[in-house]
Design a protein around this nucleic acid. Structure first.
Lengths: 228, 228
DNA sequence: GATTGACTCAAACGTTTGTTTGAATTTATA
DNA sequence: TATAAATTCAAACAAACGTTTGAGTCAATC
């Protein structure tokens, strides 16, 4: 079971030339990789230490225990939620621009950065296998994200309050982005070409935006008919 | 690590009055529950045995080992993929009817059957935490499912071949259904009302169908413009 | 050169894991 | 009832787990 431990040793070294081997960071990066690939339970501290080429006890030395290492890997790999939100939350953006910003938060990590992919995968994994900190991440990262999206949608639908159907719309829009990560194994088996390479990913993002726009439009029309 | 083991003992008892305690089935059901809730690694054989009220060694007696138990729980909880597919694959169905059938495969388990929920959760978990059998399940369950959906979409879009953009459409449609399970923790925190109770779930399913229809329509229009 | 503190290391710790054992018990068959 | 098979059980097994230990190395400071 994963318990939060706060009393981990703060990093005591201030030295280090930039390219020198920094065991703390090496452990952190390796842990992120193995936790993301295998999950908290399957990734063992011995495996992490071996791959990071450090002694086992370096882990407890720097991070207290395995849970502390996980927490550190999770937190330090975390881009500020505000960064993601601001990609689509700007009131000056058109609806399409906002959606492009929203989905680029999902497709960009797939394009470029292996590290970013690992971070995202680690987060997606938490959706199915919640550890202690996941609840906290929902509060601090996901809920504000969802809320910001709701406000964007509300504005473009000219609504004066957020109702359940707006939640449904937001959920369905986000689902398409989330599925790029969660359903990755399936996609790579069934239709790998739609996420293989930047060109294909750009096209996929275009389609996501188009689909989201069509969903918003459908919701708008539905409300028109209901209110008539 | 999870390895497939084939040489498990076939159930040797043919007896049993219907309501009698059947240890094998009791183990199987408990295992399904705990594997679905906690995953393969976290659910221990001792925990399963305790909850099922059987001796530990009953597990190896009936299923060989933990992996065998997992495999049995996974397989025996498996409705035939054909059943799911036939919900939307009938060529006589209208597009809307097909989509209703498609999404009811996701919403029905949420409505009624606790067992079905566990099965689905176990499957969704495999998406993020692939065990050995997951690849097999993709081949036998998911890929045909996706293929059947592609054919339905192809027919209603009047296409003569399946291309990447059809894959994108199919993926996005399925993503909405998948998210009901994968994003369950988030939904229950952010907008629990959209999946709380059969009424809300029926509405959610209605919206999924509406959104899917709008996406298909958008794709149709896009192709029209491209071909013009 | 001595002292201090940061860091590394091989080895061991106690637990828990999945699994096996072999006798005891129950059940079916004759 | 006698015999054999099926099933249960407490106990033990080796292996792997996360963690700790204490001596050791290295670099900086006095």
């Amino acid at each position: 079971m994963l318990r939060a431990k706060v009393n981990m040793k703060a990093k005591p070294h201030l030295s280090m030339s930039p390219n020198e081997a920094q065991p703390r960071e090496k452990i952190l990066l390796t842990a992120l990789e193995l936790f993301a690939e295998q999950g908290f339970e399957r990734a063992t501290v011995r495996q992490i230490a071996r791959k990071a080429e450090v002694n086992i006890s370096a882990i407890s030395y720097y991070f207290g225990d395995k849970a502390g290492l996980y927490q550190a890997a999770f937190m330090e790999s975390l881009g500020s939620p505000k960064d993601d939100i601001e990609l689509f939350n700007d009131p000056n953006l058109s609806l399409e621009q906002a959606l492009v910003g929203l989905f680029s938060g999902f497709t960009e990590p797939l394009k470029q950065d292996k590290l970013a992919q690992l971070c995202t995968r680690l987060h997606m994994r938490e959706m199915v296998e919640p550890t202690g900190m996941w609840a906290q991440e929902i509060d601090n990262g996901i809920a504000p994200y969802h809320q910001a999206l709701l406000i964007v949608l509300k504005k473009h639908l000219n609504l004066n309050k957020i109702d359940d159907d707006l939640h449904r719309l937001a959920m369905c829009i986000v689902a398409m982005g989330v599925h790029l990560f969660v359903g990755r194994d399936v996609i790579e088996k069934v239709c790998p070409k739609i996420i293989a390479g930047n060109g294909a990913l750009n096209l996929t993002q275009e389609r996501l935006v188009m689909f989201a726009l069509s969903m918003i439009d459908a919701e708008k029309n539905r409300r028109k008919q209901v209110n008539a």
